[in-house]
Design a protein around this nucleic acid. Structure first.
Lengths: 208, 208
DNA sequence: TCCTCTAAAACGAATACTCGCTCTTTTAAG
DNA sequence: CTTAAAAGAGCGAGTATTCGTTTTAGAGGA
């Protein structure tokens, strides 16, 4: 009946993060399925028991990584939509594509996102989470579309839901082309988008 | 040194297809990794030895399925681009999205495509194949963009490579929203696209 | 008489996870 | 400050299972 001889909470959180970081690197390197728990354990420099103290199963580890991947994207898209003076649509697209670019590298999160899509096709709980997050992503772009319409960038009868979905939909297409094939760079992609928008942008678009 | 008492080539091809069909269903149901060879063997109603006579390994089975998935898309996109009188861009988008829709169901190929993306991140040979196929997809849409420019649908200085990449890029974004989240339907998506294009489309666009 | 296919067993390698142990940290008493 | 005990933190050999693949021997058809 004495005090609580536990280790500090910061230590626990740090250990947990240490394992998550190791798992991130392993999953990035070999994918969810081809990565064994032993791989993560070695990468973290810990023991089997230690890892299983913080994560009850490999599935829980995969889920945690998936959540942090999607959370990262939600933060950025949310910040874009929450800006006091939302930039014109082409600049929104530029910023969003710039973020995508930053996640396309060998240690970027997008490679993990592709695996999350794949995994969510077989894991209903993960599918539910992904569904809610992507609805949120789309919601951010719908907000931006609505503001763009109010700013006169879009016809008054334009449907923000539809335009937002298209705007958001541009991103995976760009990312996949860059990741899987030798897709055009961001500038070229924006050029293509501008060619499709130019008359509207002519009197309300961004400088570049 | 007698005649060749082999079974007919049609029989061999049919058996091979029988195995591929079984693998298709299994991979669609459980994904590449969660599907065991025994699953495919049972689904095909054959024996271990029979399957291993037609496919040397599980990897070869996965590769064959991946090829047939991408070949299906290439056929349709190629047919779109090869039409004598290519339809206006919005109708092209409509046709392409209609194809995507048809592949979005529980037994559609798109769920397999997502897994191919995921798998190609770890399999260089598959990545190479996917890269070439996606470059071809984009090429078809570049062709369509070039023709649209010639038809006056796009500004004379528009870059077909860029516009084609954006057009093609719209598809995965739409498909993923439909597959993973409760994304808007095709009509709504097209509405959003039209809102972004309308002034150009006003004098050259499709009826609907 | 080949060839195809079956059925079954066996293979080694790899898997996720358990469990009893040791070590370290923390608190409380002397 | 020293000391001791309690409990959580960490360890790693071990378990049971599953995997892809090979090998066997034989049945049936062209």
């Amino acid at each position: 009946m004495c005090g609580v001889p536990r280790v500090s909470d910061e230590h626990l959180a740090a250990r947990r993060q240490q394992i998550l970081d190791a798992a991130w690197r392993c999953f990035l390197r070999n994918g969810f399925h081809a990565t064994s728990m032993q791989d993560v354990i070695n990468e973290a420099g810990l023991s089997v028991g230690a890892v299983y103290r913080y994560f009850r199963s490999k599935h829980e580890l995969v889920t945690s990584i998936a959540e942090s991947v999607l959370d990262g994207a939600d933060e950025l898209f949310g910040a874009l939509a929450a800006a006091e003076h939302p930039p014109p649509l082409l600049e929104v697209a530029d910023r969003a594509l710039e973020f995508v670019d930053s996640q396309l590298g060998p240690d970027g999160a997008f490679r993990l996102a592709v695996q999350v899509w794949s995994e969510s096709l077989r894991d209903p709980a993960l599918a539910d989470f992904v569904s809610r997050m992507y609805a949120g992503f789309r919601g951010h772009f719908v907000t931006l579309a609505r503001r763009a319409r109010e700013a006169g960038e879009l016809p008054p009868d334009a449907d923000p839901e539809a335009v937002g979905a298209v705007l958001f939909g541009l991103l995976p297409g760009y990312a996949l082309q860059r990741l899987l094939s030798a897709g055009p760079d961001r500038q070229t992609y924006l050029t293509g988008l501008r060619a499709m928008l130019d008359q509207h942008v002519g009197h309300a678009g961004p400088a570049r």
